[in-house]
Nucleic acid binder design. Structure first.
Lengths: 148, 148
DNA sequence: ACTTCAAATGCAACAATGTTGCAATTAGAT
DNA sequence: ATCTAATTGCAACATTGTTGCATTTGAAGT
């Protein structure tokens, strides 16, 4: 029974409404991708979205255009991950608490350290800070052990 | 005055010697690329290297292999930049003091803030920390002004 | 409901970046 | 000078992203 997001007192804006609010058309492609991003616990790559859509696949090019449109319209944010793959997240919505990552230069693995995120520095006048990421690199225990 | 922080009395190791020291062959391709990386003030991409070699071009594939070999042998380090292009730097030599970067989600520009780098967290047993990077993102003053 | 038309899509073709297999070349040891 | 495994160059392929254009469609107006 899919209960349709209980609308207590606030208005639960649907993906379609959020899209129309930007002045653009609420097409199935945009709606589905936006829903996916909304429910994804982590940033999704173009390929992730393709797989997730599964049967109801969009054209590859359309997906590129939808994703870029979401970014241009401010609904999503695009970032390259450590393996230089583009990943998309809902703008603002994410609220991913800022991780600390360690990447091994030798094997490429990424570890999530559980260390406190550093405090944000003072931003220059007019700048808005949306997210901060602290990335460390070096050699992991495995590689240090095997290589020398 | 570019004093190359040589260890005063030590021998200035030539690229060829440094390559042979790893047990591999000192080929012209490797020597030229290593020299390039040594003299480059900033990390170079595959394409940068191709352009820099100019007339004396290597095969595209050979260059990929040389760069990867440099990384595998520990002479160079590979990192993706904000535009997700691989960039190579001499290992160790760099000593780029750890910057704090701010990337604008709207225009993509990268600003170097001059803020103190955060202190490194305690590393797990066996891990070696080689570099740390603190990346911030949001909207820059220009974009905040124009796009409300 | 029906029309209309710019916006959005799908397709085909292309571009950039990276990878693999293999035959020809060559650095460096003997 | 010779030998041989380590490199190289080439061709072919894979992945990821872009562009032009003909077709379809959301939603505004009738």
């Amino acid at each position: 029974m899919p209960d349709k997001t209980p609308s207590s007192t606030s208005t639960p804006i649907s993906p379609a409404e959020r899209i129309r609010a930007t002045g653009a058309r609420a097409t199935p492609a945009r709606i589905r991708v936006l829903e996916l991003l909304s429910s994804a616990p982590v940033p999704l790559s173009h390929h992730d979205v393709e797989l997730a859509l599964g049967d109801a696949t969009l054209d590859r090019v359309t997906l590129y255009r939808v994703l870029d449109w979401l970014v241009a319209s401010g609904l999503a944010v695009k970032r390259a991950d450590e393996r230089r793959v583009w990943r998309f997240t809902l703008a603002g919505g994410g609220q991913h608490h800022s991780h600390v990552h360690f990447r091994c230069d030798a094997c490429g693995r990424v570890y999530c350290l559980d260390a406190p995120a550093p405090i944000a520095p003072v931003m220059p006048e007019g700048f808005t800070l949306a997210r901060l990421e602290f990335d460390l690199s070096g050699r992991c225990a495995d590689c240090n052990r095997s290589a020398r």
